[in-house]
């Protein structure tokens, strides 16, 4: 086979990947703009300050409706997380009431949370959640940053492989949180419980605009704007979805260096061996 073969097979593989990865969210409106994230790229890492701010936004805004049930309090302090101390985590966990039991008399009871507990559900069940939100279900946010994406056309999806760009989910979340419009464009009608969002697939979203300037108080001097809130809470949700991202990228770099050196040695070994065959 010749060079064309390589090229062609490369394209087969690439197109197939891309079309699979990008086939979703095709019905969305404008493509969410790409943002700069500290955790993108081969040396990506979380900004602890940002995660803490994002967590504050989650606690003061999102948590009213959205649970985080796959995340345990203890993980807030693990390496590559928010950097909370053991004491901080204990105090934080104790602010939550956890359903436990049954006790010796056979009844369930509430107790203060411990680090080993998970963020408790906000509603008893899906029906209860829908009943209080006009039929809409506030989804759990534990893996939301990986559960959303948008379509990247040709050739962008191929470039993303090389650039290691996998922040489509967070781009979308940030765009959604900042993408509310005052009212629907002419010709579109909204029910009283619907809102117009540029980036939501179908545009009619049941979540009221959650953020407004100065809603959450920042103590580190970061701007108290919708854009900054959206950015921070999205970063926090990325951490919630991928708590081992830092370890993954760090180990990945070590593995890459190792494999490249190993490949070099294997290449020269092969060359030496074959030298005697000609």
């Amino acid at each position: 086979m010749n060079k064309n073969t390589l090229l062609a097979l490369g394209i087969v593989a690439a197109i197939s990947f891309g079309s699979a990865g990008s086939a979703l969210a095709a019905e969305a409106g404008p493509q969410p703009p790409r943002q700069k994230w500290t955790f993108s790229g081969p040396f990506g890492h979380y900004d602890k300050q940002q995660l803490q701010r994002g967590f504050k936004v989650y606690r003061e805004v999102c948590q009213a409706c959205h649970s985080l049930k796959l995340v345990a309090f203890r993980t807030l302090g693990q390496p590559g997380a928010l950097g909370f101390s053991e004491g901080q985590i204990k105090a934080l966990a104790a602010e939550y009431q956890i359903n436990d039991g049954p006790n010796d008399s056979g009844e369930m009871f509430q107790r203060a949370g411990r680090p080993s507990d998970y963020f408790p559900p906000i509603f008893a069940n899906e029906q209860a959640a829908r009943a209080t939100h006009n039929g809409a279900l506030p989804v759990d946010l534990s893996v939301i940053a990986k559960a959303r994406t948008y379509e990247v056309g040709f050739p962008g999806f191929l470039i993303d492989i090389v650039r290691q760009y996998q922040e489509n989910g967070v781009d979308y979340l940030h765009a959604l949180l900042t993408g509310y419009e005052e009212k629907a464009p002419a010709g579109e009608t909204l029910t009283p419980n619907q809102f117009w969002n540029k980036y939501f697939p179908g545009h009619k979203i049941s979540m009221r605009p959650p953020l407004e300037d100065k809603r959450v108080e920042y103590t580190d001097g970061s701007p108290q704007t919708v854009d900054q809130y959206a950015r921070d809470v999205t970063a926090f949700l990325m951490w919630a979805a991928e708590p081992h991202l830092e370890a993954r990228k760090r180990i990945g770099f070590q593995v890459m260096i190792f494999l490249i050196v190993f490949a070099g040695l294997a290449y020269f070994t092969k060359k030496k061996i074959w030298a005697s065959a000609h």
Partner: peptide, 12 residues
Amino acid sequence: LYIATGAMGAVG
């Protein structure tokens, strides 16, 4: 060369 390659394989 052979020993280095083999050793890297073992470490890997």
